[in-house]
Simulated scan of single mutants.
Amino acid sequence: MFWATLLPATTAWFGSDIYSSTAAWLYAVNVIVYNISFSMVRNEVLKINDRLKHLYITEIASLILNIIALFIVFFWPPFIMISLLMDILLWSIQPVVRHKG
């Protein structure tokens, strides 16, 4: 949860200068580390309840998208906003899986 607390600071820094590669890179790193830490939490939950296993593919796709964005922001810092929009869309179009029980 520590990484989630850094998101407002990196967002504010990136928002103050959208063309700053350093701010965009730091924001992208923060998102990646948050993505990894959230994945670790989800793995602990899956040990107890396996109803969320269908999210594993989306989680990996999200991580790959964020890593690609990390490299692109060196050349065009505003790309981080496009990648986050793609990330939101990726998580929004999740299939609904109903658990029979």
Rank of each mutant, 00 (worst) to 15 (best):
I72Y: 01
K47D: 13
P78L: 07
I72T: 06
I32G: 06
S83L: 08
R42E: 15
L26F: 12
I68G: 05
V31T: 00
R98Y: 11
D87Q: 14
I88E: 12
V97A: 14
N66W: 06
F14S: 09
S21L: 09
G15Y: 01
I18C: 03
W25K: 11
V33M: 11
I88R: 09
S62V: 04
E59Y: 10
L55V: 03
N66D: 01
L46F: 04
G101R: 11
V45W: 08
M81G: 04
S83M: 09
A61F: 00
F14P: 00
W91P: 07
S37E: 15
A23P: 05
G101A: 05
M40Q: 15
W76M: 11
V31Q: 06
Y19N: 10
L26G: 06
I68Y: 01
L55P: 05
I88A: 14
V45P: 03
D87T: 09
S16E: 04
I72M: 10
T10C: 00
V33G: 03
I57S: 12
F38A: 13
I72C: 04
A61K: 05
F75Y: 12
N35R: 13
Y34V: 05
L65H: 06
L63W: 07
I88W: 11
V33Y: 04
P77Q: 02
P8F: 05
I48P: 05
I18W: 01
Y27C: 02
T58V: 05
I67P: 03
Y56S: 15
F14W: 03
L55R: 11
P8Y: 06
K53W: 10
F71Q: 00
E44H: 12
I93G: 09
F79M: 15
L89T: 08
D50I: 04
A12E: 00
V73T: 05
N43Q: 15
I60V: 10
V45K: 14
L70A: 07
F38G: 14
L89W: 08
W76P: 09
M1S: 10
W76H: 09
I18P: 01
F71M: 03
T10N: 08
N49F: 11
A9H: 02
I80A: 02
S92K: 14
W13Q: 09
L89G: 15
G15V: 06
N35S: 14
N43M: 14
S16A: 13
V96D: 08
P8V: 07
M86N: 07
W25T: 14
E59A: 07
M86G: 15
N49H: 12
A24M: 01
A24E: 05
F79P: 06
L55M: 13
F2H: 12
L65R: 08
T5R: 13
V31P: 03
Y34W: 12
V97Q: 15
F79H: 08
V97T: 15
A28S: 12
F2Y: 13
S16F: 08
S92H: 08
A28G: 07
N66C: 01
I80W: 00
A61N: 08
L46I: 06
S39K: 06
S62E: 02
K47W: 02
S39W: 06
P77E: 00
H99A: 06
L70M: 12
N30C: 04
K53P: 07
L26M: 11
W3F: 08
L52R: 02
I36M: 01
A28D: 02
A4P: 01
Y27E: 01
A23I: 06
F71N: 01
I67H: 10
I68S: 00
W76L: 11
N30F: 05
M81K: 05
I57R: 15
D50L: 00
A69I: 02
